[in-house]
């Protein structure tokens, strides 16, 4: 075995990326359809399906909070990882700066989501 091997901390980011990728593949298209087409056009779903009181109630429910957090945070971790690695692939050898911007924005958005969701009460 080669000497001086350092364990990579990639599994943390890779797991978040994997979870976000799976979730976005499963829920992404449906979310685009519901929030972007079905509700605004009153197509299949009633136009008030996402009215403020209904969404507030959803965000105040424990399971609703979990869903919103997962959809926002994991999608962002997925995107951050994908963008960071794509930069590398197109020849922009992103260093610590790009890493901070990519993963940092996902981290900040995760913290904001948690704070806002908890602030909405139960």
């Amino acid at each position: 075995m080669k000497p001086g091997l350092k364990r990579s901390n990639a599994p943390i980011f890779w797991s978040l990326f994997g979870a976000g990728g799976m979730l976005s593949a499963l829920f992404g298209p449906a979310l685009v359809f519901i929030t972007g087409i079905a509700v605004p056009f009153g197509f299949i779903l009633p136009a008030d399906a996402m009215s403020y009181p209904k969404m507030l109630a959803f965000a105040q429910n424990f399971i609703g909070k979990g869903f919103i957090l997962a959809v926002i945070a994991l999608f962002l971790w997925f995107a951050a990882h994908r963008i960071f690695h794509s930069l590398h692939e197109v020849g922009i050898h992103a260093g610590v700066g790009a890493k901070l911007i990519c993963y940092g924005s996902a981290f900040v958005a995760t913290v904001i989501s948690v704070v806002v969701l908890l602030g909405l009460g139960f």
Binding site: M1, L5, K6, R7, S8, H88
Partner: peptide
């Protein structure tokens, strides 16, 4: 388990995209 040291290292599998 011995080979895992290499697999999980910074030269290991996570370079792959």
């Amino acid at each position: 388990a011995e080979r895992m040291e290499l697999v999980a290292s910074e030269e290991g599998v996570f370079h792959c995209s």
